[in-house]
Amino acid sequence: MNPPPDGRAPRASGVWRDALRRLGRSRAALGAASALAFLVVLAILGPHLNPNRYDAIDWSCIAMPPGLEHAHWWGTDALGRDLFVRTLLGTRISLAVGLLATLVSLLVGIVYGAVAGYAGGSVDHLMMRVIEILAGLPLIFFVILLTVVFGRSEYLLFAAIGAIGWLTMARIVRGQTLAIREREFIQAAVATGAGPVRILFRHVVPNVIGPVIVYATLTVPQIILFESFLSFLGLGIQEPQASLGTLIASGASEMESAPWMLLIPSAVLAILLISFHLLGDALRDALDVGDL
């Protein structure tokens, strides 16, 4: 990620093409990316392949084990609802909230971190002090208060979770910004009379994006896990909607009598999380970011 010594900003396209090439050579990254792509496609198309609806209760098939000889390929839950459809819809919702929260934390974190790092001095000091204070508060405390306000709208809730989960992102971006602020191409932009906002978003932000992307791929699984914790508390996605978290939480209470209710959504969650982690690790290597 080092810019060429001639003082121009590094050509983003070249950096990314190199990174992509390196990524393409990593078997773990390819495997993880294909697994993710497969799950996304399955989550989008899958529910249409099965005649059952996610909230339809089939009284004749309560807690039926998985099998291909009946219409409930992945079995049913304790209410007779189809697990194939519910799991895939749950995957869709988990992915959506994970990406949404990550996106929001990305936006807030980048703006906050870039401003703090670029402003420097007492502004930076004050802004970092605010982060220190916010980091001293337990996250779950905020989240519970947010559920009171946004409880009925899951997507707003997770956007809000993203809006308070940006602290680490802001620290990373600030550190990167501080490091590149003194580089020649920034100085050159200042010399040509570009305003601070323009410099920040045209020159600084594109050059801190590497570590940010790596951290983002690691944030998505964190949010998905956090959602499952909220679901366990009954604060996440509300019935009859399902997320992987709610499915696992209800499966956990039936693990003796109907283990597939736990195992199927857990397996999907595990594949999802492992894929994101592997992808994040491979990206870190490809972009040469070092440990965050």
């Binding site: 896990l225 366990f232 003796e256 999380l273 492992i274 982690h277």
Partner: peptide, 25 residues
Amino acid sequence: IGLSVVAIAVPSFVLLPALGLLFGI
């Protein structure tokens, strides 16, 4: 690496009952 991702990914509300089921019951 593989096991560590699994260990980070398994929620405690799954792990503890599963361990209880295996070692307790």
